[in-house]
Design a binder for these strands. Sequence first.
DNA 1: TTACGTGCAAAGGCTTTGCAGTCGG
DNA 2: CCGACTGCAAAGCCTTTGCACGTAA
Lengths: 162, 162
Amino acid sequence: MARLSTDEAAALVERFRRQLRERRLPVTRQRLAIAEGLCRAEDHPSVEELSRRLRAKGERVGMATVYRTLDALVAAGLAREHDFGDGFKRYEPLSREVAGHEHLRCVRCGRVIEFVNDRLERALRLTADEHGFVYHHHRIEIHGLCRQCRGTDLGGLAARVP
Amino acid sequence: MARLSTDEAAALVERFRRQLRERRLPVTRQRLAIAEGLCRAEDHPSVEELSRRLRAKGERVGMATVYRTLDALVAAGLAREHDFGDGFKRYEPLSREVAGHEHLRCVRCGRVIEFVNDRLERALRLTADEHGFVYHHHRIEIHGLCRQCRGTDLGGLAARVP
DNA sequence: TTACGTGCAAAGGCTTTGCAGTCGG
DNA sequence: CCGACTGCAAAGCCTTTGCACGTAA
């Protein structure tokens, strides 16, 4: 969930550090910087964006390392990967304390906000079961025009054939 | 919806043809072939796959044209675009007669099956509204292991840190 | 010291674009 | 005939990979 408390963020980084140590893998400055950068995020940054923020803080980290570390965080269950159809992936920290949540995205400005609806989630698990599937995960996104953008939009999204 | 009846498929192609004529745009052999190829599909083909099927039928159509025509079909509201996270987009014909539907995808073999749940859809519209969004569209996907694949899987998807 | 990580640049995979030739209306 | 389309190849974007060097343990 974006916007972790300071404690949650610290705990998440600590878990990452522990996982690395347990596996006898080097805990590098870069890995910690990336994990911390992600945990501090209040939104769902892309690799590019996260990289930019680290650079702004004076951290020198190559893009490839950001990609590799985010993959590791996702594999470790400490981060979540999203593709909202912007043409690139976005990431968010995944705290144990915080329940699963879904996303509402503005088609105009790209703003993403979160919401929780347990009933929805239960319904999806049930549906998977009804069709003989073993549930793994799901994806729910609502795309629309946010409050700030609705005034601006004048129907420019009408269907058109090139 | 994949698996359109012959009538629905013909109607969809006819609507495409009409839209083109109305806009004084050329109705080309390629465009019709692509529209028909998509309407005949029983699944959710990628550009690559659709292209391959056309070629198999003896239709010579360049990839760029397939991309451009699918964009046109989507913009015209006659097709739907999906990104199930395979690294490429997939398309399906969108018939007026058929209700909206969601997708259930096998994480192992990629098979996609469809289901309808009006209650879910209403809940999403309501949620958008509650957050001050003007609803545009949504996305619901369930990822799991299908009946055929569940026997094969032995937990090889466990989290791991590289 | 040694195995793994890092950074850079090159390579990949899908999609878009530029342009000369072609064709529908 | 004219404007739009097509096909090819080149370019674009995001992401992954190869490799020499650096560094945590």
